[in-house]
């Protein structure tokens, strides 16, 4: 088949909302784009456990500890769903880990910020998971079948994450002066990094277009960011707190919230490895991988031995 011809057929399938499945013929660039996006999404789930893991032993009550444990376990699960979706595209799990550990693959830069107080667990649930949900809900309809199915499962579980985060902040917002201050401080520190999670502005990401044509992506970064800001600007009122943006105000004409200028220099800098916790996060992952090597090898050796015994 002529190559132009089948690529047109491929696009036709996408246009007709027919999902692409693992063994279907697909353009190499489509495959590569998906591998990169899905694996980096998986890495974000896995690295995302680290800032929260820090607070499991410090949670203020048994109830909060149990909730946080469940949330972190969910994130491990989300990482695994996504790794398994990426593997259907022909990349091995070890290769993906290797790309993470060597810095070739990225993860969401939000996880390079430190979690300084308990209120950060609330702000992460509400803002970081909230932004993630905004990104992830349209991905449930993404054109690649295994990715879409993984996202459906993730989105179902993610809503508990956001709600428990808001509840942590709501509790603090009704507490002592010190607790209220802690709540406001966490919002102040997490607000800007979470709206950066949507990625660079549309004019700085010219290739969104191809991704949208392939229906990997359904909305642009700016569209999603605006939706998120509209939502949070209302929710913050219920907490009786404020967002750290003096330019944030309702625009009656646009029927949207206007907001201040994002510090993209900070974004690129954190991405380049110079965020407060980049080194720490990567080292934690590499250490876990290396310390676990003997366990992986031993389990494999044991199963091989059992099989030999069975055969004998």
């Amino acid at each position: 088949m002529n190559s132009m011809f089948w690529e047109e057929l491929f696009q036709q399938k996408i246009d007709n909302e027919i999902k692409i499945e693992p063994k279907d013929r697909m353009p190499e660039k489509y495959r590569q784009t998906l591998i990169r996006q899905i694996s980096q999404h998986a890495h974000s789930e896995i690295v995302g456990m680290l800032p929260e893991g820090n607070w499991i032993t410090r949670a203020p009550s048994l109830k909060r500890k149990a909730i946080l444990l469940a949330k972190v376990q969910d994130e491990a699960g989300h990482g695994l769903y996504l790794y398994s979706a990426a593997e259907t595209l022909g990349i091995s799990r070890d290769e993906m880990y290797n790309q993470l550990h060597t810095g070739k693959a990225k993860y969401s830069s939000i996880f390079n910020y430190p979690t300084l107080t308990w209120a950060d667990m609330g702000a992460i649930g509400w803002l970081v998971d909230g932004a993630a949900i905004m990104n992830q809900v349209p991905l449930c309809r993404t054109s690649y079948g295994p990715y879409a199915r993984a996202m459906v499962r993730i989105c179902k579980e993610e809503s508990f994450h956001q709600r428990q985060g808001f509840e942590i902040l709501l509790t603090l917002s009704k507490g002592t002066e010190a607790q209220k201050a802690m709540c406001q401080d966490a919002i102040d520190r997490w607000w800007w990094p979470s709206i950066m999670m949507f990625g660079p502005t549309d004019d700085a990401s010219p290739n969104t277009e191809q991704s949208m044509r392939w229906k990997i992506k359904r909305f642009s970064n700016d569209e999603l960011r605006q939706k998120f800001i509209n939502m949070i600007a209302e929710q913050v009122k219920i907490l009786g707190m404020t967002l750290p943006d003096p330019d944030l105000k309702w625009n009656e004409e646009r029927k949207q919230y206007d907001f201040g200028k994002i510090n993209w220099e900070e974004f690129w800098n954190v991405l380049a490895g110079n965020g407060p916790c980049n080194k720490q996060r990567l080292h934690a992952r590499i250490k876990a991988w290396e310390d676990g090597a003997w366990v992986r090898d031993a389990a494999l050796a044991y199963s091989e031995k059992k099989q030999t015994h069975k055969a004998a």
């Binding site: 980096q40 990225k106 380049a272 990567l282």
Partner: peptide
Amino acid sequence: KFYYGDYGESKHGAADI
């Protein structure tokens, strides 16, 4: 390309590790 958690290749990487 830029997506959630996707910020391109090694240009911005912490490749020293």
